[in-house]
């Protein structure tokens, strides 16, 4: 193996054989080291949040990767491949142009609260696919909280871990963590930005954030699109509850209960919260 070992000779056989062996060892080790080094680099560049989202997104079931335009019925059955980064999506860009030319581009509608689903869905704010809202407050400050459906699932978090003011959040990175019905939930930040203030949800929000200068809003849902999406989410959650708990949980046109978990403690809340907050 080494020149000083018994039996070693600088002959063709040894040079060829051990040469190939050491090449293989070198390739394997250096590839491993490259992967490790890149991991460190990702941490230094603060790009881990988008990587974690990328890995998780790739493993989400197709039903959770539904395109926003499939929710609205514009592109039935379409599945997102881009991690809900609508800014990168050519199809989305084209559709927005078409809608804009018809003057139908969705806007925030400050005075309207949709309650057709039995839930209050104020249309004065943006909604993210991870069941958070982003509401303009004052100046450049927005508040982030759970939408009505998520709030009824996470009525009384067993624990809550909020970031400190000054923390830089990344879109799709963890905004805050909480324990809900025995399941650890990492709520995704809808946007890049800096945490200004935190609250325990008592005013309907958890964080106040100042979006970073180049933060993208185009992946967020608003207006009529948000209503369509919420309709679908309601149906999904309801199905998951009824199937995992083996009980009928049917939309009979009535009003949803205030606290889902209390109404149905035997449901698989880990899976349900995972499916709602898009984590594995």
């Amino acid at each position: 193996m080494f020149p000083w070992n018994y039996g070693f000779a600088w002959d063709k056989g040894h040079i060829l054989f051990l040469g190939v062996f050491y090449t293989v060892v070198l390739v394997v080790l250096s590839t491993l080291l490259i992967a490790a080094w890149r991991t460190l680099r990702d941490f230094r560049r603060n790009s881990t949040a988008s990587i974690v989202w990328h890995v998780n997104f790739a493993e989400l079931p197709l039903s959770e990767r539904t395109c926003r335009h499939a929710c609205t019925g514009e592109l039935p059955g379409r599945v997102c491949e881009l991690g809900f980064n609508c800014g990168q999506c050519a199809t989305h860009g084209e559709l927005i142009e078409v809608l804009a030319s018809h003057g139908a581009e969705p806007e925030l509608m400050p005075d309207i609260i949709d309650d057709s689903l039995g839930l209050e869905l104020p249309l004065d704010r943006y909604y993210d696919r991870g069941h958070t809202f982003l509401k303009p407050e004052f100046g450049e400050v927005y508040s982030i909280g759970l939408d009505e459906l998520a709030a009824r699932v996470a009525t009384r978090p067993e624990s809550l871990e909020l970031p400190l003011a000054g923390t830089q959040l990344k879109a799709r990175g963890v905004a805050w963590s909480m324990r809900v019905n025995g399941a650890d939930v990492h709520v995704m930040s809808p946007i890049d930005g800096e945490v200004i203030d935190t609250a325990h949800g008592e005013h309907g929000w958890f964080l106040r954030i100042k979006p970073s200068r180049n933060a993208s809003f185009c992946h967020l849902l608003r207006g009529f699109e948000a209503v369509r999406w919420m309709t679908r989410e309601m149906e999904r959650v309801q199905l998951m509850v009824s199937e995992s708990a083996s009980i009928p949980a049917l939309a009979d046109g009535g009003m949803p209960v205030d606290d889902f978990a209390a109404a149905c403690p035997q449901a698989d809340w880990r899976s349900i919260t995972g499916a709602m907050f898009l984590a594995n």
């Binding site: 083996s246 046109g253 009003m255 209960v257 889902f260 209390a262 109404a263």
Partner: peptide, 24 residues
């Protein structure tokens, strides 16, 4: 359990809700 019949996203009968969870 605060189920009122008209409020009906999740309707659980008390007997069924006692059933053990299917998750391992």
């Amino acid at each position: 359990m605060h189920l009122e019949q008209p409020r009906g996203l999740i309707v659980a009968s008390s007997t069924l809700s006692m059933r053990a969870s299917a998750a391992p």
